[in-house]
Nucleic acid binder design. Structure first.
Lengths: 335, 335
DNA sequence: CTGAAAGCGCTTACAG
DNA sequence: CTGAAAGCGCTTACAG
């Protein structure tokens, strides 16, 4: 009946029970600190000691099969390139939830396989979606008792700025900063990487909103490849018009670096001729020529908020209140 | 006997069996395409169709419990900051293994919890270690039937250059490039981030080896913070000596960017006064002032090699032969 | 306060 | 060619 292959399974709760002279029931009660059951301190101690000595670790598979729930939190990422911001977010999230006994599993590259297959085969306790799920996927997961949590990284066009971190607010903040420095004709430097479309949409919308709120003309949008030559073309497009652009809001610091390279190639001075602001405040921003002004995303607060949301969902508690704004303009020499 | 909580479990193989008028055995045989068992084409078709129609997805927990094996591949990362290189590696690995029905689970931030607890509770099919495991951990995993695969990212001081990608070779390549351009006094710019110590050790050793092989003095090592001021201090240290440094091998492109900023602050020209070479060939390298020469890691080949190694380990096949060298110097203006 | 027993969903040796 | 049955390791309602 047993599989033929040699697979040495580990120590089981039966081993612990036998060794400490109690039943598996008692072992389970003690090790899970089950409420409403009183076990004598001596037994409790003996079981704990035995489990420790034997190096007992419960089988997640058996526990999951039995309870219908695991201690896995599945983070579903689209095929975004993971920059330092998302990386930090995941690392902090894993640390926070790890402290509560939850293991974070990151699934990278959504869309390749059907989502249903993924969560059905992992049986996670909660699923964290970094972009919106299809309504039928979300319904199916909830029906299966899986908590579904959004990262609030997605765009909400109807309610910009409502989330702790909204892409829309990032775009607004960039334009506000440029406008405060007197720029009236503003450009938006979008990334060419289509995988970033979700972010771009929100940030660009924010830039548009802020321009509108301040009575400025619509931002002039151009995709800027991460290459000095390509960036120079974009820069010329922005400048060789009746009212030349003087302020550029870039999708992120990488794109902003490309814009700086393009401006240099064209012979324009920063910030005298054109001001540039990025997003993310990566280390390279501080090292750029000139040092790049950027929007810092305060990712620690986001990670905290997200883990609180996951824990609340699991405990059946109400969603935590969004944290106060964490976005911040780090001003350097480029604006 | 059932858990009280409402948890709607999904469709089981019993449902499929009942619905298609066969036993669970047959369902299992058909859906797993079990070898050595012949099922009539009609039955086979009927079972498949029913499973599809019902949206059946097998319970990973039950299968794992039964077979003692899962379809999970656990990647254990130390608490490295994930740069674009490791990110690409993981993404490509997940894509490759996903095609074989294996799900890649990334555990970020090793060392926080005991490793044994992690793999015992996940029951992975294979564990990919991005740094060497403690011998007792590795032995325990192997004994439990888990395949253990190394990423070859680690340093092997006894056999530098043996791996498809060795950190040692990266360092050698950097120094070789600088020496080929006439630099005799070479510096190594190490990162301040201690989480990168594993890589730094190997790369620095490679730099030392190559200096030795070419009869050059030992490289002068300094940690360089990602800040223009801090970098300027390092640069002065390299220059204000009897035989000033003229070539700098930087740990990676970020550090190289800092070195460039430091050189600029001190008023030295690149590459006329000092040549600089980085590692990773990130987009920012091409955008730097001057454009940065860098070592490209050819990460696709590494990912391919790694996934082949994982599959070979699982299939009990021999480890694949290491791929030919994938490191490549991308020469730009900084050398 | 503690134990015997059921059952989560699957795979597979064995019997027909 | 197909099915009945055992058992992976756990949790928990129930009986003592």
């Amino acid at each position: 009946m047993l599989p033929k292959e040699v697979d040495v399974r580990g120590v089981t709760s039966a081993d612990v029970a036998r060794e400490s002279g109690v039943s598996r029931t008692t072992v389970s009660y003690v090790l899970n600190a089950t409420q409403g059951v009183h076990i004598s301190a001596a037994t409790r101690e003996r079981v704990r000691e035995t489990a420790e000595r034997l190096g007992y670790a419960p089988s997640a598979a058996a526990r999951t099969l039995r309870t219908g729930r695991s201690d896995l939190v599945l983070c579903v990422l689209p095929d975004w390139p993971i920059g330092p911001v998302v990386d930090s977010l995941l690392e902090l999230l894993a640390a926070e939830l790890g402290g509560r006994g939850l293991a974070v599993l990151v699934h990278h590259g959504r869309g390749r396989r059907p989502l249903a297959e993924l969560w059905r085969s992992v049986t996670p306790r909660a699923v964290v979606g970094f972009t919106e799920f299809a309504p039928e996927d979300e319904r199916a997961m909830r029906q299966a008792g899986i908590q579904v949590v959004g990262t609030e990284l997605e765009t909400d066009p109807r309610d910009p700025g409502a989330h702790a971190v909204s892409q829309v607010r990032i775009g607004r903040l960039q334009v506000a900063h440029l406008a405060d420095r007197g720029h009236r004709r503003i450009a938006y430097a979008a990334p060419t990487d289509q995988r970033l479309a979700d972010f771009t949409t929100g940030r660009l919308q924010g830039a548009r909103l802020e321009c509108g709120a301040r009575g400025l003309p619509e931002p002039v949008v151009r995709e800027v490849d991460l290459d000095p030559g390509a960036a120079a073309v974009a820069v010329r497009g922005w400048r060789e018009v009746d009212t030349p652009v003087t302020g550029v809001a870039a999708y992120n610091d990488e794109v902003a670096l490309a814009v700086l390279a393009g401006l240099r190639a064209v012979g324009l001075r920063v910030p005298q001729d054109v001001g540039v602001i990025g997003v993310d405040d990566v280390p390279a921003a501080r090292l750029a020529v000139p040092a790049l002004t950027s929007v810092s995303q305060g990712i620690e607060a986001q990670a905290l908020y997200l883990s609180a949301a996951v824990l609340a969902a699991i405990d059946g508690a109400a969603e935590p209140a969004p944290f106060p704004a964490v976005l911040r303009v780090v001003e350097r020499e480029s604006t």
